[in-house]
Design a binder for these strands. Structure first.
Lengths: 135, 135
DNA sequence: ATAAAGTCTGTACTAAGGTACAGAGTCAAG
DNA sequence: CTTGACTCTGTACCTTAGTACAGACTTTAT
């Protein structure tokens, strides 16, 4: 068979078959051609695309946002102004995310450092660090 | 009234009143004392805590994960081994998140750079960059 | 002292992101 | 040439994270 069956795609991308169909419905991946009998024939790239989607989700982007990200990347019908706007907004968000993650990182670091020394470790408030900049 | 009413907390933390109650139910914030008549009296710190929760969510942590993060930070019933494990697992995840975010960042950067020069910008695939390391 | 605004509990609803069938047809291996 | 593994569509269901009342009580502002 030409192209990948849905089962292969799902397996390669580490997702449920239904998830693939779901993404197709949402337009996150494009409708693949079908065989005579109606079986989907996916191009191999779709696996990469699904992995990207999953990853972006774990980074806190919604499927809608991922969709836009991908559409722009696909060169879909957006004008330059639109893309500039979108990119710079996302960039800001990402900067903030990175900086907050760095904070959490250093907190966790402290936390685990305090640990082997025993004690109730009650003064390691994660919140202290977040007094500024989280809002 | 001693402490903050639920309405004040919600307003300060920029969330719905119901969300505050919801978090209380889940144990993300502890049950506050009540007035004679049953009104909640929240300590001011709760606002900070809720902001932290919201922020962590935007970074892709589930409420369950946030709960653990906070419990550990609160010095709750975990032994050192537990905390070490947890912290190092989370640290790894965070490192990965940061590195993926950096990737997306540079992609967006490229995207917006290509833009003013017009053209269909069809070769800026976000996916190319994700071939390795996303899984 | 009375209205408006706030709060209480409990239950029900929503939206996002899937997941799980049922019932029917298709493909591939022995 | 049949049996088991796949796939199809469609609908229903699930979890997470809230949100929205209803009906009753409390506080506050005038």
């Amino acid at each position: 068979m030409k192209g990948l069956t849905i089962g292969k795609v799902a397996k390669e991308a580490n997702v449920n078959i239904e998830t693939v169909r779901y993404y197709e419905r949402l337009g996150l991946i494009s409708k693949p051609p079908r065989t005579e009998s109606g079986y989907r024939q996916f191009p191999v790239e779709v696996v990469q695309r699904i992995k990207f989607i999953k990853r972006a989700q774990e980074l806190g982007f919604t499927l809608l946002e991922v969709n836009k990200l991908l559409s722009v990347s696909d060169g879909k019908d957006y004008d330059c102004h639109d893309i500039q706007q979108f990119a710079s907004k996302k960039l800001e968000e990402i900067e903030q995310k990175i900086s907050d993650l760095e904070k959490i990182k250093s907190i966790l670091y402290d936390l685990s450092k305090k640990c082997p020394g025993q004690g109730p470790l009650d003064k390691c408030s994660i919140l202290e660090e977040f007094k500024e900049g989280s809002d």
